[in-house]
Amino acid sequence: MPCSIESLKKLALLGAVDECIKISSSEFTEHISSSSKTAARILKKLDDENLINREIVQDGQLITVTEQGLKKLRDEYADYLRIFEKEGDIELYGYVVNGLGEGKYYINLDGYKKQFENKLNFTPYPGTLNVCLANYSKHTREKLEELPATQINGFTDGERTFGSGKCYKAIIEDIECAIILPSRSHYPSDLLEIIASVNLRKKLNLNDGDDVKILLKQNNHKYP
Rank of each mutant, 00 (worst) to 15 (best):
L191N: 02
L215K: 14
Y187C: 00
G209K: 08
V198G: 07
S189T: 01
N199I: 11
V198H: 10
S197Y: 04
H186N: 01
N207H: 04
K217D: 04
G209N: 09
I214P: 11
G209P: 03
L206M: 08
D190K: 03
V198D: 11
K202D: 11
L181F: 12
P182I: 14
L215I: 14
R184C: 07
Q218L: 07
S185E: 01
K203P: 05
L192T: 00
Q218R: 10
S183M: 14
S189D: 02
K203S: 12
E193Y: 03
S189F: 04
D211A: 15
V198K: 12
K203N: 08
H186T: 03
K202R: 13
D210M: 15
I194A: 03
I194P: 02
Y187G: 00
D190S: 05
L192N: 01
S183K: 12
L204N: 00
N205P: 09
S185G: 00
S197A: 09
Y187R: 01
A196Q: 12
P182R: 06
D208C: 06
Q218V: 07
I194D: 03
L200H: 14
L216Q: 10
K202P: 08
I194H: 04
E193V: 02
E193A: 05
Y187M: 02
R184E: 10
D190A: 00
D211Q: 14
K217Q: 09
R184P: 04
V198L: 12
L215G: 08
N205Y: 10
S185V: 00
Q218C: 04
L191D: 02
H186K: 05
N207M: 03
V212P: 11
V212W: 08
R201T: 04
I195R: 05
Q218W: 07
L191I: 14
L192C: 01
A196S: 15
Q218N: 06
L216I: 15
K217Y: 08
S183Y: 14
D211N: 12
N199H: 06
S185H: 02
A196Y: 14
S197H: 08
D208I: 15
D211L: 08
S197K: 14
L181R: 09
K213F: 05
L181A: 15
V212L: 08
I194R: 08
H186V: 04
Y187V: 01
H186R: 00
P188N: 01
L200S: 12
K202L: 13
H186S: 03
L206H: 00
S183W: 10
K213W: 03
K203L: 06
A196R: 09
S185R: 05
L215C: 10
L204Q: 02
N207D: 07
D211E: 13
D211K: 15
L206W: 04
S189K: 05
D211V: 11
N199Q: 13
N205D: 13
V212M: 06
L200M: 15
